[in-house]
């Protein structure tokens, strides 16, 4: 059973997100969560990106509305559209949670 996690914010220090691990986990950065895919605070990437065996996605429209270009997105993160999100939800992740 694969878990898809929607991360909609980047300010909350989400201990649940820190503890979530596991092969095949999918993390979707949406809304202000997309900042995880671009920030470099104190020269370091977002801690969320350090997990092993995780597939990272960021919603293209939320990236663009915040003034970022795809080239500024961390290479570990796949930029996706709403259509991609629906397909990933239906095909790859049986359980979904929102943080």
């Amino acid at each position: 059973m694969r878990l898809g996690v929607f991360v909609s914010d980047c300010q909350k220090n989400d201990s649940m997100l820190e503890r979530l691990n596991g092969e095949g986990l999918g993390i979707f950065f949406v809304e202000n969560g997309v900042y995880h895919a671009v920030i470099h605070e104190n020269g370091r990437d977002s801690g969320v990106l350090q997990k092993k065996g995780v597939n990272y996605y960021a919603l293209a429209s939320d990236i663009q509305t915040r003034g970022f270009t795809t080239s500024e997105i961390d290479s570990r993160v796949n930029v996706v559209t709403y259509e991609d999100v629906v397909d990933l939800m239906m095909n790859d992740y049986e359980k979904l949670i929102w943080l």
């Binding site: 929607f6 909609s8 914010d9 939800m89 239906m90 049986e94 979904l96 949670i97 929102w98 943080l99």
Partner: peptide, 10 residues
């Protein structure tokens, strides 16, 4: 449902 997503609040 095949999939369920509870979207939480701010």
């Amino acid at each position: 449902s095949d999939r369920v997503l509870h979207i939480g609040g701010e």
